[in-house]
């Protein structure tokens, strides 16, 4: 019966347009990933809207802008301290990614499931956001 139904149901004009649109979408997505493009240069960590740390993927370096809010654990791991608690972040320099590996933001700890590669990493209770940057930081001397 199924075979009969399939034989009986011809392609309609609308179906062709939908399939064509899908093919174009898939090809476009494929091409977009193949073409050389600007990757993210780095990331910023903000707490309550204030930038506490800049990460630079090009030069594998970190600049701490609020020293009382950041504790360096090692070259790849930093503890971000807010008024309500902390988030410990780990940087994967090779893959240009950042994740939260430890936090006291509550039972669900949703921020630990996020990755910078997929978008901003947000911890709502601690008002911490890790965002990708494509901008080059201003040159600072001193």
């Amino acid at each position: 019966m199924l075979t009969e139904n399939i034989k009986k149901a011809p392609f309609k004009k609308g179906d062709i347009i939908v399939y064509l649109a899908l093919i174009i979408l898939v090809v476009t997505l494929f091409l977009v990933t193949l073409l050389p493009q600007r990757e993210i240069n780095g990331f910023t960590v903000t707490v309550g809207g204030k930038t506490v740390l800049y990460g630079d993927f090009l030069n594998n370096s970190v600049k701490i802008s609020k020293v009382d809010w950041v504790e360096k654990i090692d070259e790849n791991t930093y503890k971000i301290i807010s008024q309500s608690g902390y988030n410990t972040i780990k940087i994967d320099w090779q893959n240009k990614d950042v994740v939260v590996i430890e936090t006291d933001c509550g039972i669900s700890k949703e921020c630990t499931y996020m990755r910078l590669k997929n978008g901003d990493v947000i911890c709502v209770p601690h008002q911490m956001i890790i965002s990708r940057t494509g901008e080059i930081p201003k040159p600072v001397v001193g």
Binding site: S65, K66, V67, K138, V140, G142
Partner: peptide, 13 residues
Amino acid sequence: WDLQIVDPFSKNR
């Protein structure tokens, strides 16, 4: 370039 010069009296550079 917009060269930024650090405030020597600022703890946070």
